[in-house]
């Protein structure tokens, strides 16, 4: 009996310590963001990274109050927000429409097509790394390319390349279809009898009820695209085309070579501008993320 009583405390202590470990790097990053580059470089590091006087220099850049240091900062935010919103809208729309069609309508080749789509998810993303680059560079009739894809830049260093790749999320289609299986057809039938056409049935009857799974698709897509540094880094050069994540990647040693001394407060503060929105979004939608992740695993 005594052991049983002690267990909750042991549980809380273990979990509490682990939570501190998970949180600590982010806590430290907040502290460093309030230092000047000089403060950080000249004082010995402390486990509690807050120094007096607090410097708001990097925070001002982050909040667009003073962007002398990063004149393109407004572009970074704008591009990140636009790109994220664009991908959320398309991914949710495509997942919903395709998921609904695969769940409800009968058409030729349905099962074979669905099987092929599912099989493509088994291909690791690394396979498409080089081909996507070649395809973007040599896309026919884009960016000065001729019909054979020669002579110009293709999609490279265009704004379109930020918006054109990977709009279809097969997992999203799969999850919507799965969730439609437990959705009573009677609701749709009653809508049809009342004279609504299929689009009204889809968007006015089914869509509102499928919100939880679509929220999961939206939030995972949003976080993925918000965090994505790769596409702007690899496919574009112009500073105005960079997203916030790509801007951070261009400050890291990957971009500037190994031998420069990194300006840590600057990098960390910009990184924080990237991290905080994700964390806030997660805090708001965490219920959907957890249940979506769980259902993807238990059912899939």
């Amino acid at each position: 009996m005594t052991i049983r009583k002690k267990i909750p405390w042991v549980r809380y202590i273990i979990l509490g310590i682990t939570c501190l470990i998970f949180i600590y790097p982010l806590f430290y990053a907040v502290g460093v963001s309030f230092m000047t580059t000089n403060q950080f470089a000249t004082t010995p590091p402390s486990l509690i990274p807050f120094q007096r006087p607090l410097s708001f220099f990097h925070m001002r850049t982050l909040l667009l109050i003073n962007t002398q240091r990063e004149p393109n900062m407004p572009f970074y935010y704008l591009n990140s927000v636009l790109r994220t919103a664009w991908y959320i809208v398309w991914t949710v729309l495509i997942s919903f429409v395709a998921g609904y069609v695969f769940a409800r309508l009968r058409f030729r080749g349905k099962n074979a097509i669905f099987l092929i789509l599912l099989m493509t998810t088994m291909i690791p993303p690394v396979v498409t790394m080089a081909p996507t680059y070649l395809m973007m560079a040599r896309f026919p009739l884009i960016g000065g390319n001729n019909i054979l894809g020669q002579g110009g830049q293709g999609f490279l260093d265009t704004y379109a390349v930020l918006l054109v790749l990977n709009l279809v999320n097969i997992l999203g289609i799969f999850l919507v279809r799965l969730s439609m299986n437990t959705f009573p057809r009677a609701i749709e039938d009653s809508g049809r009898i009342d004279g609504a056409n299929i689009f009204r049935v889809m968007f006015q009857l089914v869509f509102p009820i499928q919100k939880p799974i679509l929220a999961y698709v939206a939030i995972t897509t949003g976080v993925l695209i918000w965090n994505d540094w790769y596409v702007p880094f690899v496919f574009t050069d112009r500073p105005q085309f960079q997203t916030l994540a790509a801007a951070v990647s261009r400050l890291t040693s990957v971009a500037i070579g190994q031998y420069g001394i990194p300006d840590w407060p600057r990098i960390i503060a910009m990184g924080l501008g990237l991290t905080i929105p994700s964390v806030v979004m997660f805090a708001i939608f965490q219920r959907h993320i957890v249940s979506g992740l769980a259902s993807a695993a238990v059912k899939g």
């Binding site: 790097p25 982010l26 990053a29 540094w229 951070v248 890291t252 960390i268 991290t275």
Partner: peptide, 8 residues
């Protein structure tokens, strides 16, 4: 974002 947290 990995690009941000790796830097930490």
């Amino acid at each position: 974002a990995p690009v941000a947290t790796t830097q930490i």
